[in-house]
Design a protein around this nucleic acid. Structure first.
Lengths: 251, 251
DNA sequence: CGCCTGTTTGACTCGCGTCAATGAAAGTGG
DNA sequence: CCACTTTCATTGACGCGAGTCAAACAGGCG
């Protein structure tokens, strides 16, 4: 179930990213970012023991679906996921995007089964953290317990931001907010804050932001004409960060 | 700090509701509804010991504000509250309404300070549950810990519903969803599912639903013309529950 | 009684959704 | 490696739902 460390990591040819399953948490280059769940280095070893590293998840593959039993939360090591739920009307509502270093699957805690689904947007490496183990760990390690609570509560705050965004803002402001969010999360991983790759198709962006694909496309075009960003398909370069922030500050 | 039970409860003249501060959790007529935090009756006594019952909160009075230190969560005993946050642009975004039996203040866990504010919509009785005590209790009682986690995660789910609502739905669907939500929550308290009193002004409704007061008003009027509801200021009667549900099912 | 705040209603405007067509990119099979 | 298909993104023309501005109308409270 758990491999030894020290191995040379395989590089996934498809994305040029590291999707290997053979790194211990302490050695993982995402440690410190990936697992806010246990910042205390003493606790990392214990966390390390309960974490399962699965095979890379290919594009379109589901990590879990709506209604699935809730057994674990997942840390994204590489790639990207989206979470969505299906409304009574049968349409999909994207509720979030998850990038390396982020935790997905917290939605299942309340009902003990997942109320949303998570699917890979591209080939992704995922660490599975069995929740029962996490709870047991949580029994003995107060710091883990608090972290866990904080991660959940953090998710609450992110969702409130989105509520605010969807409630009041124009298409331009919504797009600006998303780009800024992605930029910030990129920077957090020590990547460029100005050059982004959008791992999700336009349809997911529009769905997430409560717009249509056409409006998203038009808004990108207009922002490009205004010299704020340069958009080429999935690649985005932020040319004027201040202007982009200003857009959003009307929020 | 804690009063003895057995006292005759004072009836608040303003609302005709019970806002007294002298009921033990076990005797409280909201027990079982109010505190999903501790459903296990054995645990109620212990929970009882840490709960503080404050004076009734008058309309417009804040329970906490954005940035306040996070010390406690609060159970609504009577009345109603709204939670809101202020966006960079300085406008208010209502993030939720809290009715008797519901828990408000969970937003503070992540940052250890509140990121939203809570204010009384009418005179309300509140039980304060010091979080440090709750955590201590949580250390020894796994059922309390799990409950707490579930309550938080439940909040996540409610917010996701709202995200979905704001992302995709027409004014009519949004209003329908709110009315259905209030109806369900009324029923949960063993009150009428068809006769509601809206404790919040139109401005708060519109803000919450991402609409304007005018649109809310017009939508009420139209729904009344269609024979689905009867609206008289803060009083709403649902005449055709099926039709109302059907409105929303387009969601 | 008259102020103040909240609600309703109407007329007008505009941003975004809808429908439709074109264009670009990626995946498939010979 | 190159046609073929399929999916995704962009652009344009048009209409509608909800926002804006403005005014009339309660209701609650001093």
């Amino acid at each position: 179930m758990r491999e030894q460390s020290g191995r040379v990591e395989a590089i996934d040819v498809l994305s040029g990213c590291d999707h290997s399953a053979s790194v211990r948490c302490g050695d993982c280059r995402l440690s410190g970012i990936c697992l806010p769940l246990a910042l205390d280095t003493d606790d990392v070893d214990q966390l390390d023991r309960i974490i399962q590293r699965g095979r890379p998840l290919r594009r379109e593959a589901h990590l879990f679906r709506e209604g699935d039993a809730f057994n674990a939360v997942f840390a994204v090591r590489s790639g990207a996921l989206k979470a969505y739920r299906t409304t009574r009307g049968g349409q999909e509502q994207v509720t979030g995007f998850y990038l390396p270093g982020e935790i997905v699957g917290l939605d299942g805690i309340a009902e003990n089964r997942h109320i949303s689904a998570a699917v890979a947007l591209e080939t992704s490496a995922i660490c599975e953290i069995p929740f029962s183990e996490l709870e047991r760990l949580s029994d003995t390690l107060p710091t883990v317990r608090r972290r866990l609570m904080q991660v959940i509560s953090k998710e609450l705050n992110v969702e409130q931001e989105l509520i605010s965004l969807l409630g009041k803002n124009s298409s331009r402001q919504r797009i600006a907010a998303l780009l800024l969010s992605l930029s910030r999360r990129n920077a957090r991983r020590r990547l460029s804050a100005t050059r982004l790759r959008l791992p999700m198709p336009r349809g997911d962006i529009s769905n997430y932001l409560g717009l249509t694909v056409e409006t998203v496309s038009r808004t990108f075009t207009k922002m490009q004409q205004d010299g704020i960003v340069r958009v080429n398909n999935k690649d985005v370069e932020i040319l004027d960060m201040d202007a982009l922030s200003a857009e959003f500050t009307a929020n």
